[in-house]
């Protein structure tokens, strides 16, 4: 195979794997923003907490990496429900700016809290050997970790789409996102639907944070470092809770970031910012947003 083809396949593989990871982490934010118009900037705090759950279980309880992932999901989902009941619920009718301030406050508290509990240094995990090797199939070699990201991302994406399109609960979510008042009118308990969606979305963020430790790193400033990425996925995808849009945006972001670094590394972080600006100016409501 000519090197240029190998390079393209490599970029596609890495870019899509990275994009899938971003999608898993931010899809919850997209749906909850669409449904409740609630700007939860602290979404990254959930992802960070998921990462710390995994490192703690691995280091202090000797769990294997893969076994910790479901625990991160469940634990973060549970934590997020408590936060939703205690704090977020009162803020749904509040001004956007107050929502921003509240969630920035939570980000700051989670950063200091994580530094206090786990220390300020970046966390390391020793992935099992089968996740740190490169496999070669024919002329193409890929990392098993990238393959794991790709596999988990694909399964979760399919599950999310199936759940939304084919289940009764999914229909309720879509109804609530489309028009909250009408949904209430036809007897859907929107609050309950929302709580569950919020929990699943946050759990997915936690799972993404755990899954991504190897690619994204983990330290207390995680919620701030990746805030820009979440915002980009949500807004490029469309702020009306479009899951398709979030997926497209995450893949676009993953691919343009990877391709930019691979082919024109001089440009540094410019690529994703410029892509974001262009998309926003071209379609201010996002790729799949409604006018």
């Amino acid at each position: 195979m000519p090197p240029i083809v190998i390079g393209i396949v490599q970029v596609l593989f890495d870019g899509v794997a990275f994009g899938m990871l971003l999608f898993v982490m931010s899809v919850g934010l997209s749906i909850t923003l669409g449904m409740m118009r609630f700007a939860n900037l602290a979404h990254g705090s959930f992802a960070m907490l998921g990462g710390y759950t995994t490192t703690t279980l691995m280091r202090h309880a000797g769990w294997s990496f893969l076994a910790t992932l479901p625990v991160s999901f469940v634990l973060i989902a549970a934590v997020s429900v408590v936060l939703e009941r205690v704090l977020y619920r009162r803020m749904y009718q509040a001004k956007e700016l107050d929502q921003v301030l509240l969630t920035v406050g939570i980000i700051y508290m989670s950063i200091a809290g994580a530094a206090y509990v786990w220390g300020p240094e970046p966390q390391a995990i020793s992935l099992p050997d089968y996740l740190t090797v490169y496999r070669t199939v024919g002329w193409f070699s890929f990392s098993t970790y990238g393959a794991l990201l790709l596999a988990v991302g694909t399964v979760l994406t399919l599950a999310i789409f199936f759940g939304l399109e084919r289940t009764r609960f999914g229909a309720m979510i879509r109804a609530a996102v489309d028009d909250r008042r009408v949904a209430l009118g036809v007897g859907i308990d929107v609050n309950r639907v929302f709580t569950i969606t919020f929990a699943v979305g946050s759990g997915l963020a936690g799972l993404g944070g755990a899954l991504g430790i190897n690619a994204l790193g983990l330290d207390p400033s995680f919620p701030i470092e990746y805030l820009v990425f979440f915002l980009i996925v949500v807004s490029i995808g469309g702020t009306a809770g479009s899951v398709k849009g979030a997926l497209a945006a995450a893949l676009l972001l993953g691919l343009s970031d990877t391709a930019g670094k691979y082919y024109i590394p001089q440009t540094g972080a410019f690529i994703i910012y410029v892509v974001m600006l262009l998309v926003m100016l071209w379609r201010p409501n996002g790729l799949f947003g409604r006018a």
Binding site: R90, L101, L102, G105, Y108, M109, S110, I111, G113, A115
Partner: peptide, 17 residues
């Protein structure tokens, strides 16, 4: 010097509430 972020965050939350 290390954990003041927490109290700033708490202040923001209280101001909002």
């Amino acid at each position: 010097p290390a954990y003041w972020y927490f109290w700033i965050g708490l202040m923001l939350v209280l101001v909002v509430l």
